[in-house]
């Protein structure tokens, strides 16, 4: 089978990866139209061909997260990349967390106040990704957005920003419940961490999508959820691995909450 893969560099809208004549990934950037001496949001948008998906910050058992590298004008800094809640794909052999069709990553760009801002800034971002369907392809591109010349399709309107924010996970402070101190059961290098929840949300818990954990390998396909608890099997990578925190998304019926739970060994 001959796969013809073309990847070109672009400006505000980067041309797509093309496989056998089919467009796979199209990356573009959007920004709020406003006074850029104050913090503002930019969005990195990926439009994907049917069935193809990009990966979340934890890709799961395989895959690769998107790498975002900013090149900002002097006097600005980028906040964290804000991911919407991913979908879970996979089988009993392999789990993947990712996004199909369209993905909009949000990021707040902030004036640092440490140097004077001259003129209207241009923003450049370098993107590196793995996109998969049946098979996988690596891709990368650079996108430049001139904030002085935003076209209508490059403008992040209030309505678009509101809808993008609505797709982000909710803060744990809005979870009507509490999390007990995690319980850890060890069997050699295998550690099973159990998170117990109490409160109104407990009967609605559907899943937990963990973020990567330093020095541990997560057994994603063995994460189990019961009415009030989530058990996450982890393989310690060395005898000296120490579990400090569990971060991830608690998936409930219709919502997702960003959790960051310290673990006391």
């Amino acid at each position: 089978m001959l796969l013809t893969v073309l990847l070109m560099l672009g400006s505000a809208t980067a041309p797509a990866q093309v496989v056998d004549g089919e467009r796979i990934v199209k990356a573009s950037m959007l920004a709020e139209r406003r006074d850029y001496s104050k913090p503002f949001y930019v969005g990195i948008q990926f439009d994907l061909s049917s069935g193809w998906y990009l990966y979340w910050i934890n890709p799961g058992d395989s895959g690769l997260p998107i790498e975002v590298t900013w090149e900002l004008p002097e006097g600005y800094e980028a906040g964290p990349i804000l991911y919407p809640v991913p979908q879970k794909y996979g089988s009993s052999e392999s789990i993947a967390y990712g996004f199909k069709r369209q993905l909009l990553l949000l990021c707040e760009i902030r004036p640092t106040g440490r140097s004077r801002i001259v003129g209207t800034p241009s923003i450049k971002v370098s993107l590196d990704w793995l996109v998969c369907k049946e098979s996988c392809l690596r891709g990368s591109t650079e996108v430049i957005l001139d904030l002085n010349r935003l076209s209508p399709s490059q403008e992040m309107t209030e309505d678009l920003l509101r809808r993008a924010k609505a797709r982000l996970p909710r803060s744990s402070s809005s979870l009507h419940g509490t999390v007990d101190i995690p319980e850890i059961v060890r069997d050699g290098q295998m550690e099973r961490v159990t998170l117990r929840f109490s409160g109104n949300e407990r009967i609605r818990i559907k899943d937990f999508y963990p973020e990567p954990i330093d020095d541990y390998t997560i057994e994603h396909s063995s994460i189990s959820v019961s009415n009030n608890q989530v058990t996450i099997p982890l393989m310690a990578q060395t005898q000296h691995s120490t579990l400090k925190r569990i971060r991830g998304l608690l998936i409930t019926e219709g919502d997702a909450y960003q959790l960051d739970i310290p673990v006391v060994e």
């Binding site: 996979g90 052999e93 392999s94 290098q189 396909s221 063995s222 994460i223 959820v225």
Partner: peptide, 16 residues
């Protein structure tokens, strides 16, 4: 009855 929803993948091999 326990409400278990994991896909229950195979156990990884153990070192040693």
């Amino acid at each position: 009855a326990l409400g278990v929803v994991a896909l229950m993948g195979s156990e990884p091999l153990k070192i040693g």
